[in-house]
Amino acid sequence: MTRVSMKVNGKDVAGEVEGRTLLVDFLREDLRLTGTHVGCDTSQCGACVVHIDGQPVKACTIFAMEVEGADITTIEGMANEDGTLGVIQQAFQDHHGLQCGFCTPGMVMAGAALLKENPKPTEKEVRQYLEGNICRCTGYHNIVKAIMAASGQQVDPPAMAAE
């Protein structure tokens, strides 16, 4: 066992891990931050995206020991300080950018990273950036709209079901 310490969502944390402990497992099991999802165990789906020192990383691809001293942000850290939804989270809600919600944490984290790099992306740029994130429910259209809305761009309101 090895002791690791890092900052997660602005708080100093530490724990004992085996060398093979993945960051996603440390976050979920040791820190009980279960918003970071494990969807595929092969780094294909993107449900486990977190930010490590400001960069998006699939938490299933890195060992907890490798992030010693790093600054980690998970989906739980995306909320406002008062606990209300952050801008991108609210945009996902407002624009129906989720259905089952399983991929949503990774999509939000990827979208936030994109907006940090490119504050006003085009629809094509959003779609290209999300290529490493899989959603089996939505068809991506409203996810893209949500990210564009979070950037402050005008998007069409979500389509409502016929009554």
Rank of each mutant, 00 (worst) to 15 (best):
residue 54 G to V: 03
residue 126 V to F: 03
residue 122 T to V: 02
residue 123 E to D: 12
residue 117 E to G: 01
residue 117 E to W: 01
residue 74 T to Q: 08
residue 105 P to L: 05
residue 10 G to V: 02
residue 48 C to N: 02
residue 108 V to P: 09
residue 138 T to H: 02
residue 138 T to K: 02
residue 47 A to G: 11
residue 6 M to E: 01
residue 39 G to A: 03
residue 8 V to L: 07
residue 80 N to L: 13
residue 142 N to T: 01
residue 107 M to S: 05
residue 140 Y to M: 07
residue 35 G to M: 06
residue 30 D to N: 15
residue 61 T to I: 04
residue 148 M to S: 10
residue 129 Y to Q: 06
residue 158 P to N: 03
residue 140 Y to R: 03
residue 98 L to V: 12
residue 28 R to V: 02
residue 18 E to N: 15
residue 137 C to W: 08
residue 132 G to C: 06
residue 105 P to Y: 06
residue 65 M to G: 07
residue 137 C to L: 12
residue 136 R to M: 01
residue 75 I to A: 07
residue 105 P to Q: 08
residue 23 L to M: 07
residue 57 V to C: 06
residue 43 S to E: 10
residue 81 E to Q: 14
residue 92 F to L: 05
residue 45 C to V: 12
residue 133 N to W: 10
residue 155 V to P: 11
residue 100 C to D: 09
residue 109 M to Y: 10
residue 49 V to T: 15
residue 89 Q to T: 05
residue 135 C to N: 09
residue 130 L to S: 07
residue 148 M to W: 02
residue 6 M to C: 10
residue 23 L to V: 06
residue 39 G to R: 04
residue 45 C to Y: 10
residue 145 K to C: 13
residue 16 E to Y: 10
residue 21 T to Q: 11
residue 43 S to P: 00
residue 77 G to V: 11
residue 154 Q to H: 13
residue 34 T to E: 13
residue 44 Q to V: 14
residue 4 V to N: 10
residue 77 G to N: 05
residue 59 A to T: 04
residue 5 S to G: 11
residue 137 C to M: 13
residue 108 V to K: 10
residue 48 C to Y: 01
residue 149 A to W: 03
residue 114 L to P: 03
residue 160 M to Q: 15
residue 140 Y to D: 04
residue 112 A to R: 14
residue 155 V to C: 10
residue 117 E to I: 09
residue 132 G to M: 07
residue 75 I to Y: 09
residue 13 V to Y: 04
residue 40 C to A: 12
residue 28 R to I: 04
residue 129 Y to E: 08
residue 151 S to L: 02
residue 12 D to Y: 07
residue 88 I to P: 12
residue 114 L to Y: 06
residue 112 A to H: 13
residue 23 L to A: 05
residue 95 H to Q: 15
residue 126 V to A: 03
residue 110 A to T: 15
residue 134 I to Y: 09
residue 154 Q to D: 15
residue 69 G to C: 05
residue 25 D to R: 14
residue 70 A to P: 01
residue 58 K to H: 12
residue 36 T to K: 00
residue 111 G to M: 03
residue 73 T to M: 14
residue 90 Q to A: 13
residue 142 N to R: 06
residue 109 M to R: 08
residue 109 M to H: 09
residue 87 V to R: 15
residue 125 E to I: 10
residue 2 T to M: 14
residue 33 L to H: 05
residue 99 Q to T: 06
residue 22 L to N: 00
residue 160 M to H: 12
residue 88 I to W: 11
residue 33 L to N: 01
residue 131 E to G: 02
residue 127 R to K: 15
residue 10 G to H: 05
residue 125 E to H: 05
residue 37 H to Q: 14
residue 29 E to P: 00
residue 46 G to M: 11
residue 129 Y to R: 14
residue 16 E to W: 13
residue 72 I to S: 08
residue 61 T to A: 15
residue 141 H to E: 14
residue 99 Q to H: 09
residue 15 G to R: 07
residue 30 D to G: 08
residue 72 I to H: 10
residue 3 R to Q: 15
residue 89 Q to P: 04
residue 23 L to S: 09
